[in-house]
């Protein structure tokens, strides 16, 4: 554990190194064991949690660290979900092919969108991403190849839920590890500067375009992988489910509740979100109203989210990307 004098009064403790790594390994090991022996309902809930967590972690990378607040991540979810369905039902390929094709198309889509979107900042960027996702939804609603609004089924779903569980866990862990490594690399150092002042960052040599592009593509890939895998588990996809804005609503909720701009925030946020949505599942009409109400309360009273507030109050940082002058 390192200590940092952050002002004349405060000292921040940073949890990291071996103890943290061991704690993470233990948590993942427990989750793996649950994958083998856990009861079906628990595993179903955890699969959803892993996939939402993966999407939230990369959305936080974009919005919390580079200021690109995308409201159109469902574009990637839908594209990947349809890739999964088309590959397995139209071409009768295995779901592995479906997953990888979805991820690859997600990456290409991110690269193409970057050319258009990176000319915009802030609100304009957010609206543009949303419009693009809506346009894709409209397109899929009328595209004969994907059966228009009638949707498609995913074929060849593994009979053993363990595989779905393990891959979902893998996607989640991979997203977290990737984002953590990115933030602790040279690139991450530049991102933190960019978040505070993009012009000043570029005048000390940070390549804004490249940094944004890497984050956007990483987010696109993991959102697509998680989305594709979600629809394998879900068995069928429609334009309104794949490209529905409830994806973005959920992801934004998770990141805000957990703590935007913190590594652990989206992880904690996804646990909270999935638990709440499971509890509220019995009250379908009320669930969104209650979730919205909770979000408003958190924004009003804990604007830094659960983790952000805890870190400030208790003066610690977890999974931090802080650099110290002494090694």
């Amino acid at each position: 554990m390192k200590k940092m004098k952050s002002s004349n009064r405060d000292t921040v403790r940073v949890f990291g190194g071996w103890p943290l790594l061991i704690a993470c390994i233990v948590i993942v090991a427990v989750l793996v064991v649950i994958g083998f022996v856990g009861e079906n309902n628990i595993r179903r809930i955890l699969i959803r949690m892993f996939l939402y967590c993966a999407m939230a972690v990369v959305w936080n990378l974009m919005s919390g660290y580079t200021g690109m607040t995308s409201l159109g991540q469902q574009a990637f979810v839908g594209i990947a979900g349809y890739s999964m369905a088309v590959m397995t039902s139209t071409y009768l390929a295995s779901y592995w092919v479906g997953l990888l094709v979805g991820g690859a198309i997600g990456a290409v889509l991110a690269l193409v969108l970057a050319v258009i979107l990176f000319r915009m900042r802030g609100m304009y960027f957010a609206i543009a991403t949303w419009v693009i996702a809506e346009a894709l939804k409209t397109f899929f609603l009328s595209w004969k190849f994907v059966n228009q609004g009638g949707g498609l089924s995913v074929m060849g779903r593994p009979t053993d839920r363990t595989i779905i569980y393990m891959v979902a866990l893998l996607i989640c862990v991979a997203a977290i590890v990737t984002v953590y490594l990115l933030l602790n690399s040279k690139l991450g150092l530049g991102l933190t500067a960019m978040r505070d002042d993009p012009d000043a960052a570029s005048s000390v040599g940070v390549n804004i375009f490249k940094s944004k592009l890497i984050c956007f593509v990483v987010a696109g890939i993991f959102t697509a992988l998680a989305g594709g895998w979600y629809f394998l588990n879900n068995v069928s996809i429609y334009p309104n489910s794949g490209f529905g804005n409830s994806w973005t609503v959920a992801v934004v909720f998770i990141v805000i509740i957990g703590g935007i701009g913190t590594m652990a925030g989206p992880i904690v946020g996804s646990v909270v979100y999935i638990m709440l949505s499971e509890i509220l599942a019995d009250y379908p009409g009320w669930s969104n109203i209650i979730l919205g109400f909770i979000a408003i309360l958190v924004i009003l009273f804990l604007p830094d989210g659960i983790i952000g507030t805890l870190q400030k109050k208790l003066k610690f940082e977890i999974l931090s990307q802080k650099r110290f002058s002494q090694e």
């Binding site: 952050s6 933190t192 978040r195 002042d197 650099r323 110290f324 002058s325």
Partner: peptide, 8 residues
Amino acid sequence: FEGMSVFE
């Protein structure tokens, strides 16, 4: 970069 330390 206000959120970062002087060193950073």
